[in-house]
Design a binder for these strands. Structure first.
Lengths: 238, 238
DNA sequence: CGTAACCTTGATTAAGATCAATTCTCGTGG
DNA sequence: CCACGAGAATTGATCTTAATCAAGGTTACG
């Protein structure tokens, strides 16, 4: 694998070619089609992933078959790092498992699998990387704290409003170079996955979209959500 | 502050006296009565805490006043480490805030506050500590993943059963030296807090206890929960 | 152009929240 | 030692939100 692939991963951007070579020696690129499983939460842990292209959902499934998305991974980010540091013994003996399921949710997903054991040795001599990992996990933790709060304390209208506004802000940030006068977002995930991310089911999501549309706050055209009344939407989001 | 106090904190057990002295130089002990606030989620971030004695709840509150406990802290553990690594800039400029609220929930709580900035400098020269922190945050992350799953996908009977069995197992582990033939647990938190931890309210918790009691699975005497039929309880917990 | 995946809409149900009224428990001071 | 009062917990009646069940419509793509 070429170093420029590894370098895409935020965690590795500061590494030099030598260090990247080392990591490349115990990593390999994997490709997944839409709907393909990357790992199950019962599988023995091999290592963590860096997402190069596409998107991935990390999720849990109840006995009844309902799904809750824990995390949506975007390119250049890593996932499934948690087991590496949880219990060193388990990594060495191969008794660690993944904390949740992961599935590719875009047509072409490319991810680098980085082996746990050699990565741990590498990490011992690289405190900068350690700090970056601490930062990654901390951000994830903050995000999950807010996810718990949202699912437990807010109704679905609020959760959806927060999501739309958040996506809208990300889009504006990306486009901040050119003045942007668009008033819509394009959903990057299916409505089924959006429902699961918000902790609900697709029927309820559909009704909530309709409710916001009936109140002239948004206009839904397939995957495009036009924001008619940002102020009212923000009121719902608080 | 004496080093033996700091040494109680799991994160610091491997440090030598010299290192402990350094940490002590930018830490100080604080005491809280039951119900006292340790920090609010709006407050500027000063540093993280190591709990010496008592117990602490980390929680969020909705606009309507409903509370969701994110995490229950037990002695020897740390809390509020997240902001340190999230955004270095914000720490330096004093713009970081706590991720949630923290309140003492036992009569006498003692906690050490460790200042963020000097701790970060100290950490740069101590990779062992870095690894321990990575391990701490990873465990927390795993726990929160399960918390999200539980709140979103499981009904309250299951959540309560899981909690009781978990507490029972902890108790048996602690007592594993002497053969233990007790079949009860004593709640270490108020029922109000238990409800909030399980993502519900006290009335519903009360009804769920009653339901399990009516089915002859447990017997509730105040804070003591007698387990009559562990097998059935495990069925509910799955 | 046919089929499967995706999405919407309606009717009904169920779990748990809310509101309200008591009761229980326990620490404090008279 | 008892009485008081506050906080904690229970119980009942009702309401609300969102899940479930069911049917039909749309879209996209080979």
């Amino acid at each position: 694998m070429e170093n420029k692939v590894l370098k895409k991963i935020f965690l590795f951007t500061d590494l030099n070619d030598n260090e990247l070579d080392t990591i490349a020696s115990f990593s390999h690129l994997k490709k997944f089609k839409k709907g393909e499983i990357i790992f199950f939460d019962t599988e023995p842990y091999l290592g963590f992933y860096g997402l190069i292209d596409g998107s991935v959902k990390i999720y849990k499934i109840s006995k009844e078959g309902r799904e809750q998305i824990i995390h949506l991974v975007t390119p250049c980010n890593t996932f499934a790092e948690v087991p590496i540091f949880e219990n060193y013994e388990k990594i060495l003996t191969g008794n660690a498992t993944y904390p949740a399921n992961a599935m590719s949710i875009s047509d072409y997903t490319e991810a680098v699998l980085i082996s746990a054991k050699p990565f741990l040795s590498f990490l011992e001599n690289n405190s900068g990387l350690c700090f970056k990992l601490l930062s990654n996990l901390s951000k994830r933790l903050r995000f999950q704290t807010e996810h718990i709060e949202s699912i437990s304390l807010q109704d679905i209208t609020k959760r959806l409003s927060v999501y739309i506004i958040h996506e809208f802000e990300i889009k504006n940030k990306d486009l901040k170079s050119k003045p942007d006068n668009t008033n819509y977002i394009d959903l990057t995930i299916s409505k089924y996955d959006l429902a699961s991310f918000l902790g609900t089911i697709i029927e309820t999501l559909s009704r909530t979209f309709k409710k916001l549309q009936d109140e002239n706050i948004i206009q839904v055209h397939g995957k495009r959500i036009e924001i008619i009344d940002l102020k009212k939407l923000k009121q719902y989001a608080d």
